[in-house]
Write a protein that binds this DNA or RNA. Structure first.
Length: 579
DNA sequence: TCACAGGGCGCC
DNA sequence: AGGGCGCCCTGTGA
């Protein structure tokens, strides 16, 4: 891919003109004021080989310039590989997605314009970490930047609400996240393959030759067959397993673990154990190890903005589903440590802050927010607080969570009111938005994506009552989605600001020592949890940086809210020792 | 042989 | 009897 700094007057606009983040607090990437320079990278003339030098020169010549480019995932990996780090960026593709869909920009010509080449561009891996834009089209980055600036400015002018003022922060945070994602892939998660193999052998038995089950897994299967009184059973086929279970007299309608657990039969216990072990083998067994761990590093590809709510997705290796069973294989290099931090009760704290619910904010001043709710007398036990809040945020109605809702509503009317309001909006087909302004898709969009169900259409045509019932069910389902969207999405925004701020502080701790991995660096991210790989002698300072970044993230999003954003931090050698 | 849907389950 | 994902497996249909 050929990329070059466009040196023309048009492209070298100053950040002051661009008004990148409407927040006066500065960019969450490094905390410095937005008075730097914007450098636009456009696909043109200069050989890719020259690009790292160009970038390094500009980074040195300007104070934390903001690079504007089409797609961080397409450009940044090769820069990192060549030893060039970038302080800040504006990812036009990610920002475009936000601005084209946000309710705050819905009235702009930018949002209402038909789809164009920028909407089609997708970064795809070509080979060995080389990336390209497909399809190949000439994308005018300067024009797109101007259009995005104009849309942002118009949203602020039209709306004038605090919400419109936050949208710029979202663009900065999303872009910073793209830098973090590429850097984490570059750094990788330090992985001890021998330890992984030892863990697998301990619970599954030694690695078998291809085509055979590990010994301990085979033994579990033999127990299942014995208890069912059958000699032949493929437990990996849900349909066959269900047939066999039913002919053995088990009253089950599926082979799901939670349903099996309710049944009293000697085959259940070994079957559940088999499922557990089988899952480990297929998802994170030796094949996974061979495929994803090279030279002591697991390098997942993160996909910022890959989830509609704004959460990241991952591509390959199941990075965001790393099971606890193998976390012992994540080990710091000799002389290094892992600083692992997770945000305590992040979603309810975010809900308290965005709803301005003072009572819930006070509960959040406790280290454990759920205990704080118990101490305030809102509910009786921590479990009730936890499941009640989860139910409120997910739309659960049954069991403990449903029973707790009235009490929570009395104690925290503003917080519960916010999620209820979001649910009603979704049920009516309206969109909802996160704190910083990411907006949910409309239900029709999701229905089209899921494909139309032909049979159910026919049913609806035949039976009006059934059609109405179906519509009500669909509406409630969508209400649960929008209810959760506002909380999950806003929590994701807090996490972006947390990481972006932390990234800047870690860089400062490491000094200008060359590559990203020379000093303390982010190595892993899991929605509300981060891992820093650091020289052990810096672990104390890294811990402080993690905590201060959490506070700073809360301030960036919510200003002087009473809600405290607590993190629990542990310095460990192995990930499995973190909690 | 391939693509796809659905079951099931790991993570938050 | 909940929201969001990705991945592996099987079975099916082209």
């Amino acid at each position: 891919m050929q990329v070059v700094v466009v040196p023309s007057g048009d492209a070298s606009v100053t950040l002051h003109d661009v008004e990148v983040a409407s927040s006066t607090d500065g960019s969450p990437t490094d905390g410095s004021p937005d008075d730097g320079t914007v450098l636009v990278l456009d696909s043109t003339l200069v050989p890719e080989a020259d690009l790292p030098d160009v970038v390094r020169e500009r980074e040195a010549a300007h104070d934390a310039p903001r690079w504007v480019w089409a797609d961080t995932a397409a450009v940044y990996p090769s820069l990192l590989a060549a030893g060039a780090r970038v302080a800040r960026c504006w990812d036009l593709r990610l920002c475009r997605t936000i601005l084209r869909n946000s309710a705050l920009t819905a009235g702009t010509s930018y949002a209402s314009a038909p789809r164009g080449p920028w909407d089609e561009a997708r970064a795809v891996a070509v080979q060995d970490g080389l990336f390209d834009l497909a399809p190949r089209v000439a994308l005018d980055a300067v024009a797109e930047l101007r259009a995005q600036r104009a849309a942002l400015a118009q949203a602020v002018a039209d709306d004038g609400s605090p919400a419109s003022g936050r949208l710029g922060l979202l663009l900065a945070a999303e872009s910073a996240g793209a830098l973090v994602a590429a850097e984490m892939t570059f750094a990788g998660v330090p992985w001890d393959a021998a330890e992984h193999d030892r863990i697998l052998a301990e619970v599954l038995g030694p690695r078998p030759v291809a085509g055979f089950r590990p010994a301990l897994l085979e033994a579990k299967l033999a127990e299942v067959r014995e208890a069912l009184g059958v000699t032949d059973l493929n437990p990996d086929s849900p349909a066959e397993l269900l047939r066999q279970l039913r002919s053995a007299g088990l009253p089950v309608t599926s082979t799901r673990s939670w349903e099996l657990r309710e049944v009293d039969h000697p085959a259940v216990r070994p079957l559940l154990e088999y499922k557990k072990l089988s899952r480990l083998l297929t998802a994170n067994g030796w094949h996974w190890l061979d495929t994803w761990v090279k030279d002591g590093r697991f390098r997942p590809v993160y996909v910022p903005g890959g989830v509609v709510t704004g959460r990241w997705a991952s591509d390959g290796g199941g990075a965001l589903q790393l099971p606890h069973a193998v976390r012992g294989a994540v080990r710091a290099d000799p002389g290094w440590s892992l600083v692992v931090a997770d945000a305590a009760q992040l979603e309810p704290r975010v809900l308290a802050a965005m709803s301005g619910d003072d009572a819930m904010a006070r509960a959040g001043q406790a280290a454990d927010m759920y205990e704080g709710m118990v101490a305030a007398g809102a509910v009786g036990t921590r479990e009730q607080a936890k499941y009640g809040m989860l139910g409120a945020m997910y739309g659960g109605t049954s069991g403990e969570s449903g029973r707790m809702l009235p009490r929570l509503t009395r104690a925290y009317p503003r917080a519960i009111g916010l999620v209820e309001h979001a649910a009603r909006a979704g049920e009516h087909g309206d969109v909802v938005s996160t704190w910083l302004g990411r907006t949910s898709p409309r239900p029709a969009t999701m229905a089209e994506r899921a494909g139309e169900g032909g049979a159910s259409d026919a049913d609806q045509a035949r039976d009006e009552d059934r059609a109405r019932a179906h519509a009500r069910t669909q509406a409630r389902t969508w209400g649960r989605f929008t209810r959760n969207f506002v909380v999950q999405g806003s929590a994701a925004e807090w996490a972006l600001c947390w990481m972006a701020t932390l990234r800047g502080r870690l860089h400062a701790l490491g000094g200008d020592s060359g590559t990203v991995t020379a000093g303390p660096h982010l190595a892993f991210f899991l929605h509300d949890e981060v891992m820093v790989h650091t020289p052990t002698h810096l672990a104390t300072e890294v811990t402080r940086a993690v905590e201060e970044s959490a506070t700073e993230a809360g301030r960036l999003l919510f200003g002087d809210t009473a809600v405290e954003f607590r993190v629990s931090v542990a310095t460990v050698d192995r990930y499995s020792d973190a909690k």
